[in-house]
Amino acid sequence: MQDKEIVISIVIICTLLIIILIGFIAVILLLYQKKQNLFNIKLEGIKANYDKELLKTQLEIQEYTFQYISREIHDNIGQFISLAKLHLNTLEIKENAPATQRVDDAVELLTRALDELRDLSRSLSSEIISNGGLTKAIEQLVAQLQKLSIVEVAYEIRGDYQFLDEQKEIFILRILQEAINNVIRHSRATHISILLTYENNNLILTIRDDGIGFNTILIRDQKNTSGLSNMKKRANMINAVFHIESTIQSGTEITIVVPY
């Protein structure tokens, strides 16, 4: 074999070796990057699941606490107030004595306290959902609001009733309670309308008020918006779509679309 031919062969072999090496390194790096990407996706999925489980546990604890407080109010505090009222009613006081009026006032205050506590206990308890369903629970809530005489409340149901999981109904009720709390505390509204629409595939809850409204983008960026974030978290837990629309001085509308 000629010298020149040998040299050319060597050069070709060396070039091929370099190409193979570069190709090998490139393949390894690409495959490893692909594996990294899959690993990151899996990790994100695990994290998302963990966050969801954590949120679910937090909401369950919250719900348990509500039930506990409701029971305590009903079983203990309510009983003590009733007993106090009874004691006052059975006091032997002479008619037209100065203390009579005071006792009557005290009894009336205790009666009001008892009513408030009963309403509070009912709002915290989710037994109404188990006993009467979401529509009954909302009716009760509306009745309580109307008793307060702070706002006018209109409640409407559209469509035929469709069965919804009790857990979902409890969450919807809590969202509604939170929304109404926000209306009463912040919006200065005089009128609230609650619309419950049973569609073929979804339940739509719409809460509208004629209050002062707010800047949704500004509020979203603020830290102290636990009411709104609570509503969104509960909506996410039941795979509902949560939408809020508000214009300054034109009121606010909250829509929750819950799949069955």
Partner: peptide, 17 residues
Amino acid sequence: YKIYESLYSINNFALCV
């Protein structure tokens, strides 16, 4: 031996890399 010596260049080249 000539070809042997030439091919040994590939060994040296691989060493460089």
